[in-house]
């Protein structure tokens, strides 16, 4: 990697990089904050920020449709649901449930091992090939290593892909799309059914008598 670390790259530290650093660091920071926070409401808040920062990373990667979907569905939908759940169950004894020390050690161990495995893999996979001649598409790669986050319309092609029209960089996904639609419907019905616990409560009825009279 040393051979790439020349003055040539310094000039390419640009707005894109700065923004990436901003969002990337935010994402990592808030993900870790989720782990280390004990208060469940704050965890939810950190999660919101982490996922919002992730959508920023999506934008930087040129996936603006996915980034927006992340904001709409994940941050705006799923997490509101989650926060709702948190607030419904946020009674004092459950806001901060402490984890035993032993659990932390085991978890840290497992997490550390996972990280140690993942990071080198990231380097191996993510790096551009050392030898320029090896891969045919190199010139293309040089071209796409763009310096500014150029907005490329992706929504149309994604939409066509979901409708099962394959393109040059997208396959047809009609069947998965339909399956997921059905799945969503099933989940909606299921969730609504599950959440309706059969708790019976007695209420007085005077007011209704009055209303009726």
């Amino acid at each position: 990697m040393g051979n790439r670390n020349g003055g040539r790259w310094m000039g390419e530290i640009n707005g894109h990089t700065v923004l990436f650093l901003f969002f990337g660091i935010l994402t990592c920071l808030f993900s870790l904050a989720v782990v280390f926070s004990a208060n469940v409401v704050r965890m939810a808040f950190y999660l919101i920020l982490a996922l919002a920062a992730t959508s920023g990373l999506h934008f930087l990667a040129g996936a603006d449709f996915v980034g927006t979907m992340q904001l709409v569905l994940y941050v705006g939908g799923t997490l509101v649901l989650l926060v709702f759940g948190v607030m419904l169950t946020a009674q004092n004894p459950f806001i901060s449930l402490r984890t035993a020390g032993g659990d932390w050690i085991v978890a840290a161990l497992v997490g550390g091992i996972l990280l140690v495995i993942l990071v080198p893999v990231a380097f191996q996979i993510g790096l551009p090939p050392q030898d320029a001649g090896d891969i045919e598409g190199l010139t293309q790669r040089e071209a796409v290593a763009s310096s500014e986050p150029v907005s490329v319309p992706t929504a149309t092609r994604i939409g066509l892909g979901l409708l099962g029209v394959p393109g040059d960089d997208v396959s047809g996904y009609l069947l998965p799309f339909e399956i997921i639609s059905i799945h969503l419907l099933v989940v909606l019905v299921g969730a609504a059914y599950l959440a309706r616990a059969k708790r019976k409560v007695v209420v007085r009825q005077e007011s209704q008598n009055i209303a009726g009279s």
Binding site: E12, G24, L118
Partner: peptide, 21 residues
Amino acid sequence: QPVGLTHYLIVGAVMFVAGAV
């Protein structure tokens, strides 16, 4: 370095591990 796949993968790895923990 300019932002590359590695950067993203590392952020993804951190998120993944944080989630697992």
